[in-house]
Nucleic acid binder design. Structure first.
Lengths: 245, 245
DNA sequence: GAGTGGTCTAGACCACAGA
DNA sequence: CTGTGGTCTAGACCACTCG
C-alpha cells in the first residue's frame, strides 16, 4: 500500500520489543498473522523480520516460529583490561575471562596455535609469526573470534607458542620474559562478516561485526603483538577511559 | 534458482568493486542487465543492491542508475584529539576541524545552542544543561551529528552558551575557566539510525551508525560534559592509543 | 500432516532523471 | 518519452519442527 509501510512496520515491532510488549524469549505472531494485522503481504513482513533479526532483536527459525532475543550488550573495557591485576582477577586466564565472569556469564575459549606469515592488513605484514586463534563463547553462545600474531622471537621467549598461557594470559607471560607491552593502539571498523566469521558467530550476511585491531608495542617501540578481534555489534559495547593530556 | 544465489551475487559484485573492476564513480550495469547476467529476477538484484548500498559501497538512484561510491573511512583519533595542541592546530576550532583538514577534506559545522534537560541515557540525566547541537560535513557531505550537554553552571563560566567558542573549541574555554576536563570515558555502540539521524546523514533504515558517548570529568570528579556523537560506520574508523598501566 | 520461516519469481505501479 | 531504481504483491517451492 503506502510506500513507507516497511519502515512503519519495523518501527512498530521494534518499539513493542524495546518497551516490553514482547518480552525476551516470547514468541512473535507468525508472519501470515502479522501480514493480516498490518494489511501487507507476507513478503513485507519477512523483509521486516530480516532487518530486526540483523539488529539482533529477534530470531526467526524455520518450523519453530520467531522469538524475541534482545540481550543487553557485553561491555568490553579496553584499557583497564590491560592491567595485570584485571587480567589475573578471579584466577582468570586473561581479560575476556575476567570480564565475563564479572557479568555473571560463563566464559569458554578454544585456542589453536600455529606458525605462519602475518597477513597484509596488520602492522606485522609478511613477518614470521606465531598465530594464536581463539574462539570465545559466553554461556556457550559464540561471541568473539580473536587472532593474535606474535613475532616468533617474542613468542618463544615468552613461551606463548602453546595453548595454555597460564594466569593472566599472554601479556603476563610477555612481561615475565621482559617483553611487556608498553603502549597499545586499537583501531575499530565495522563491516559485514566474512563467510568463516558468519559461520562461527552464527551471523547473517547483513549483520555487522566490529573489527578491533590492537597493536602492542614494547618499550623500545617494537611490535610485540597484533590482535584482530571480530565481535557482533549487537552483542558488544566498547569502552575506553583516559586522563586528559 | 539456487537458494544461495543472493549471497553469491553480493560476494561477486563486492569483490569486483573492492578489487577495482568497478572503480569509484563508475556506473554499474542496470538491474535488468545484471538479472540477466546472473540468471535471476530483478527482485534479487534489487535486494543485493540494497545490501551493498547499506555497506556504503554503491549508490543506486532512481532514474540515474547505480554508481560505485566506496570511500576510505575517516580516522578519528579519540585520545590525541583531546590534547589542546591538536584541537588548536591549523587555527582550527576543535578536533573535528583539525582532523579533517589533515586528511585534505573541507570541514564545515552548523551549531545551534539552547537550554533544556539532559536525556535519560546520559550521565547528566535530568539536570539543567546547555545543549550544543553540531551538524558536521566533510566536503559538504553530512558525516556526523554531535549533541553536547553541559551543566548550566559550567557552560556560563566557560561562556560556551554561544555558537562560536573560538580557537580550540569548548574544552579550551573550559580549561580557561578552570573547568578543564581531567578524565574522559567513551562508550561505543552500533545501531540502526533513528529517523532524524537518517534524514540528516542520508542513511537508509538498514545502515548502521556508531553512537559514541563521551563523558568528560573535572579533576574533582564532576561531569562537565556529555557528548553523544552519531556517525555512519562506513565513513569512520575509530582509533585509541594508551600506555600500559 | 500442518504450520513455520527462507527464498525467489514475475509482475505491477510508482517517482525520478535525462534525452 | 524511455529507462532507471523503489516498493510491494501474490504465489510458488522448499526445509524444517512438532505434534
Amino acid at each position: 500500500m503506502e510506500p513507507e509501510s516497511f519502515s512503519l512496520i519495523v518501527a512498530t515491532i521494534r518499539r513493542e520489543i524495546l518497551t516490553g510488549s514482547y518480552q525476551p524469549g516470547a514468541a512473535l505472531p507468525p508472519e501470515p498473522d502479522l501480514a493480516a494485522r498490518f494489511g501487507v503481504s507476507r513478503s513485507t513482513i519477512n523483509r521486516a523480520f530480516g532487518l530486526l533479526r540483523s539488529e539482533g532483536l529477534i530470531d526467526p527459525q524455520q518450523g519453530r516460529g520467531t522469538t524475541v532475543t534482545y540481550r543487553p550488550p557485553i561491555i568490553r573495557h579496553a584499557i583497564s583490561r590491560q592491567y595485570r591485576s584485571a587480567r589475573e582477577a578471579d584466577n582468570s586466564h586473561g581479560a575476556f575471562d575476567a570480564e565475563l565472569r564479572r557479568l555473571g556469564l560463563t566464559p569458554r575459549s578454544e585456542v589453536t596455535v600455529d606458525r605462519g606469515i602475518a597477513p597484509a592488513e596488520t602492522t606485522l605484514a609478511g613477518q614470521q609469526v606465531v598465530t594464536r586463534r581463539r574462539r570465545m563463547f559466553a554461556d556457550e553462545h559464540p561471541v568473539q573470534l580473536a587472532t593474535s600474531y606474535i613475532p616468533v622471537a617474542v613468542a618463544l621467549a615468552a613461551k606463548v607458542d602453546q595453548v595454555d598461557t597460564g594466569l593472566g594470559g599472554i601479556y603476563s607471560r610477555m612481561a615475565d620474559a621482559g617483553y611487556g607491552p608498553a603502549r597499545f593502539a586499537e583501531i575499530i571498523i565495522v563491516r559485514t562478516p566474512e563467510d568463516a566469521e558468519a559461520r562461527f558467530l552464527r551471523l547473517d550476511p547483513d549483520q555487522r561485526v566490529y573489527v578491533v585491531t590492537r597493536t602492542a608495542y614494547s618499550a623500545t617501540g617494537d611490535v610485540v603483538e597484533v590482535n584482530v578481534m571480530i565481535m557482533p555489534v549487537h552483542r558488544w559495547a566498547l569502552s575506553y577511559e583516559w586522563q586528559a593530556g
